[in-house]
Computed example of a mutant assay.
Amino acid sequence: MDLPVVDLAPYLNHIAGDAAAEEEGVRTLCATVSASLRDTGALLVKDPRCSAADNDRFLDVVERYFARSADSKRLQERPNLHYQVGVTPEGMEVPRSLVDKEMQDKIKSMPEEFQPATPKGPDLKWRYMWRVGPRPASTRFKELNSEPVIPDGLPEWKETMDSWGSKMISAIEVVAEMAAVGFGLPKDAFTSLMKEGPHLLAPTGSDLEQHGSEGTVFAGFHYDLNFLTIHGRNNNSASASEGV
């Protein structure tokens, strides 16, 4: 699948009042965003406000956390809050392809060379849920708005997670605005619904020493619960997503 790479800079310049940002070109860019989301559900974006150094700083602290022992990581586990904050251990998240008979039949009907690997059990990845952005002062959904869990021994954790999370939200808000414009809607059609939402930065980590054999599935097919999910650059030991 060929996805367009959308540079957010022209739109950012346009909304900042830069006269050099051609309005027609910006509208074309917005149409590209909306068309890609409509036709494929995905696109690639380049945000000049997010640097590789920011991404590396985030990945570094996340890697050091996931390198800890299972017992150490479980100190941040909050099952009473439905794992909406803190760590979710491996073996907890069940992929849809493991339980959906219709999906399994569809996979089997595909040519063998195109069939995805089918998980044999729950996901083998660990996940950390970190809330980002303001929460409503009053809510009926306390589990979605619980206080964040901060691991001991990582003094830079909160600042790093908050910083990268805010950059991810900023990028996705621009994408949401551009999509709205591309669909012919008011530019705040989506972002107005995202205000004070339960946004989560949710990095995942996998133990390749324990689960390093070829064909291992760390995360099976699943639906995200959110309006949009954004992924930063990852590496072999950690990946990150943020849902709004």
Rank of each mutant, 00 (worst) to 15 (best):
Met110His: 06
Arg135Glu: 11
Tyr128Lys: 08
Gln104Phe: 04
Gly165Tyr: 04
Gly133Pro: 05
Lys120Trp: 03
Arg135Ala: 14
Lys142Glu: 11
Val174Ile: 12
Pro134Thr: 03
Ser138Arg: 07
Pro186Arg: 11
Gly197His: 05
Leu208Ile: 15
Val149Asn: 00
Ser206Lys: 15
Pro116Leu: 13
Phe141Asn: 12
Asp152Gln: 06
Trp157Asp: 02
Gly165Pro: 02
Pro134Arg: 03
Met129Lys: 14
Arg135Asn: 06
Met178Phe: 03
Lys108Leu: 13
Met161Tyr: 00
Val174Lys: 12
Lys167Leu: 14
Lys187Met: 13
Ser146Val: 05
Gly121Arg: 07
Arg140Phe: 07
Pro151Val: 03
Pro134Val: 03
Val174Trp: 01
Lys120His: 09
Asp162Pro: 08
Asp162Cys: 05
Val99Asn: 12
Pro111Arg: 02
Arg131Asp: 05
Phe141Leu: 13
Asp188Phe: 09
Gly212Leu: 03
Thr118His: 07
Glu173Ser: 09
Trp164Asn: 07
Gly121Ser: 07
Ala171Asp: 00
Ala189Lys: 02
Met103Phe: 15
Ile150Pro: 00
Leu201Gly: 15
Pro186Asn: 07
Tyr128Trp: 11
Gly182Asp: 06
Gly153Lys: 03
Asp207Leu: 10
Lys195Phe: 04
Glu196Arg: 12
Leu185Gly: 00
Pro122Met: 01
Trp157Leu: 08
Asp152Met: 04
Pro111Trp: 06
Leu200Lys: 09
Ala179Gln: 04
Phe183Thr: 01
Ala179Phe: 05
Gly153Thr: 02
Glu177Leu: 06
Pro122Phe: 03
Arg131Phe: 01
Pro151Tyr: 05
His199Asp: 14
Phe190Arg: 04
Ala189Leu: 04
Gln104Lys: 08
Asp162Arg: 06
Pro155Ala: 06
Asp162His: 09
Arg135Ile: 06
Ala180Met: 02
Val174Thr: 14
Gly153Met: 08
Trp157Thr: 01
Lys158Phe: 01
Pro136Gln: 03
Asp152Arg: 12
Ser138Pro: 00
Glu196Ala: 05
Asp188Ser: 03
Leu200Pro: 00
Gly182His: 07
Phe190Thr: 08
Lys195Tyr: 09
Phe114Trp: 14
Lys195Asp: 10
Ile169Lys: 04
Ile150Arg: 06
Leu144Val: 07
Trp126Ile: 14
Phe114Gln: 15
Arg135Gly: 07
Pro198Glu: 06
Met129Trp: 12
Ser146Lys: 07
Gly121Lys: 12
Ser138Leu: 06
Ser192Tyr: 01
Lys106Val: 12
Pro151Trp: 07
Lys106Ser: 14
Glu147Gln: 14
Pro116Lys: 10
Ala137Thr: 06
His199Met: 15
Ser192His: 10
Met129Asp: 11
Lys120Val: 10
Glu112Asp: 13
Ala171Asn: 13
Pro111His: 12
Glu177Pro: 04
Leu144His: 08
Glu173Ala: 02
Ser146Pro: 00
Pro203Asp: 01
